[in-house]
Computed example of a mutant assay.
Amino acid sequence: MLQLRRAQDRGLADHGWLKSFHTFSFADYHDPAHMGFGNLRVINEDRIAPGTGFGTHGHRDMEIVSVVLAGELSHQDSLGHRTVIRPGEIQRMTAGTGVRHSEFNHAPGEETHFLQIWLLPAARGLTPGYDQRAVDPQAVRGRLHCVASPQGAGDALQLNADASLYLGTLDGEATATLPLAAGRRAWVQVLRGQLRAQGHTLAAGDGLALWDEPLLSLSHGMQAEVLVFDLAA
């Protein structure tokens, strides 16, 4: 089974300094038909104006993943981390029993464009934690490469959630597939460009939900970058 979620149908919050597209219900945007997908709760595509950002605020019992597409995102948290996330990097924060953090765009004259993703954790009350990794461009070229998983094998971040995340870049005749075990579901989120997934053409910002499908097939990429979630039912 398939369900398309077109970019133009997402919720939009325009705060001037922040423009945020919500794939699922978030904050003041509420759509009973789009409350999440499996244990995937939030995909927000954010653009932060230079010199602005999210002041210190708190989270609990959530796995939070950030993927920067352009610009840079400065992160500071109550665990003592002070980092900058740039394109080609992925960050995971385990909120667990509670963490406070801020996220700012300190780059002059350049917008920060990034995805913030929330996943329901495998258990409540986890010890808060943080990790950040660079993604090898060669590893994702023409295929889906695991960048986060419960096992954290290889160069993947370890997630405290029943989910695996895959990044891929496709162009021209390149194709990529991902087998889906029985009872699993998948979400495809196009970050840039255009491609075909299960025969449907998807452009930047589009999403596709899959369930009861044994195999995800991606093809016909046009400078496409895609993020795929293998999720618990």
Score class of each variant (00 low, 15 high):
L4Y: 01
A7W: 09
D9E: 13
D14F: 04
K19M: 15
K19Q: 14
H22N: 08
A27H: 13
H30K: 12
D31H: 07
H34E: 08
M35K: 14
G38H: 04
N39A: 02
R41G: 03
A49F: 07
P50C: 07
G53W: 12
G55N: 07
H59C: 00
H59R: 06
D61N: 08
D61K: 09
D61Y: 10
M62D: 08
V67Y: 14
L73H: 11
S74N: 15
S74M: 10
R86Q: 12
Q91E: 02
T97S: 14
T97C: 04
R100I: 11
H101E: 08
A107L: 13
A107T: 13
E110V: 14
E110S: 13
Q116A: 01
I117N: 08
L120G: 11
P121C: 04
P121V: 06
P121H: 06
P128I: 10
G129V: 05
Y130L: 06
D131T: 14
Q132E: 12
R133G: 04
D136H: 09
V140A: 03
R143K: 05
L144A: 08
V147T: 00
G152V: 09
A156S: 01
L157Q: 05
L159E: 06
D162L: 11
S164D: 09
S164C: 11
L165N: 01
L167V: 02
L167S: 01
T169Y: 12
L170W: 05
E173A: 14
T175F: 11
L180P: 01
G183Q: 13
A186W: 03
W187Q: 02
Q189M: 10
G193T: 05
H200Y: 01
L210Q: 08
D212P: 04
D212Q: 07
P214L: 04
L216V: 09
L216M: 07
S219N: 03
S219V: 13
E225M: 10
V226G: 01
L227P: 00
F229P: 03
L231H: 00
L231I: 02
A233R: 10
